[in-house]
Design a protein around this nucleic acid. Structure first.
Lengths: 173, 173
DNA sequence: TTTTCCATGTAACTCGTTACATGATTTC
DNA sequence: GAAATCATGTAACGAGTTACATGGAAAA
């Protein structure tokens, strides 16, 4: 349902076509959402079938084929509100990406574990510096394109936590 | 695939039946994995079909019905190794549970947001203190039942990060 | 005696991914 | 002229959940 929440959230600001949604997720939102191209069109179809959004054919000049843009309906806005509250309300027993991998880390040899941890340290450092760059860029612009200011601090916070843990384990090896 | 990794990891120590796997996940592992009862039997069937595990009927005394226990095969061990390395190797663009909710948090009124944040603060505090209790219990016992010592520090680390962020946002409201 | 725990399963469903196919247009 | 980007789709599959059904044993 999170893809629905994400897409409905973006459509609240005005109609978009599929490719633009993908572009916003990848470019403006810092690329953490990791939504496959096919998933977007798939979700658009389903949400249209559920009357959460409605499609309009929009012809383009220059002989380009018409694009299908999707606008959110009243039902879509209501569903967005519902999903948003559902997300905020659920906290029970959530796990984090590497959790299961960590549970069995003692099955790796010390050398292999070290090399994994070092690779993660490098990757996390890179992602974090990219995030900082992006944050500066977005927050520097007069108008924040997506209504998202806190995503950066939240995402940053977990990435930093992961990096700290990684370094701690590396230090204790 | 993570349920497979989790279950194969548990079966590495010796054969188990479905209910016991569930018990271990819920009781010994701190209950963060959140695996539905049906999913376990479902996964057991599939892994047996893939020859990663093999089933044995074990009769019980006291007139109880025979249980089906599952033992890991050589192929299962190999698959476990593969999945473990896959998990450790993947770091690209991972998102955290509340990420999308945070992206649209400005759609909530200040009062509603505050009440959500306060509820999360309470919930997280509770989960964290439960985790600490459990950690003490497990680490105090002479033999750690599951080969998992670091799951606690990792999980704790992200929960603490979430709590810190929650308090930070609450403070800035 | 009623509830809780032990123990297993299954059918229908949802969400999302992968891998593919298509074709125009723009940039190098 | 080649490569990248724009733009849309779809068929097959995978993982996991929900909701249900079953039934015995132990404990309250």
């Amino acid at each position: 349902m999170s893809v629905r929440l994400l897409m409905l959230g973006l459509l609240r600001n005005g109609p978009l076509h599929g490719y633009e949604i993908k572009r916003i997720i990848e470019t403006e939102m810092g690329d953490w959402a990791n939504v496959a191209a096919g998933s977007i069109y798939f979700a658009l179809d389903k949400m249209a079938a559920d009357a959460l959004i409605e499609e309009k054919e929009v012809s383009q000049d220059g002989g380009r084929p018409a694009r299908t843009i999707y606008g959110i309906t009243a039902a879509g806005r209501a569903e967005f509100e519902r999903l948003l509250r559902e997300t905020w309300g659920s906290i029970d027993r959530q796990s984090f990406p590497l959790d299961i991998g960590v549970a069995f880390m003692e099955c790796l040899s010390r050398e292999e574990l070290r090399s994994f941890l070092e690779a993660r340290e490098r990757a996390l450092t890179g992602i974090l510096s990219g995030l900082k760059e992006h944050r500066k860029e977005v927050e520097g612009s007069p108008e924040v394109p997506v209504q998202a200011r806190f995503i950066f601090s939240h995402h940053h916070c977990h990435l930093q936590a992961e990096l700290d843990w990684t370094r701690e384990v590396l230090g204790s090896l």
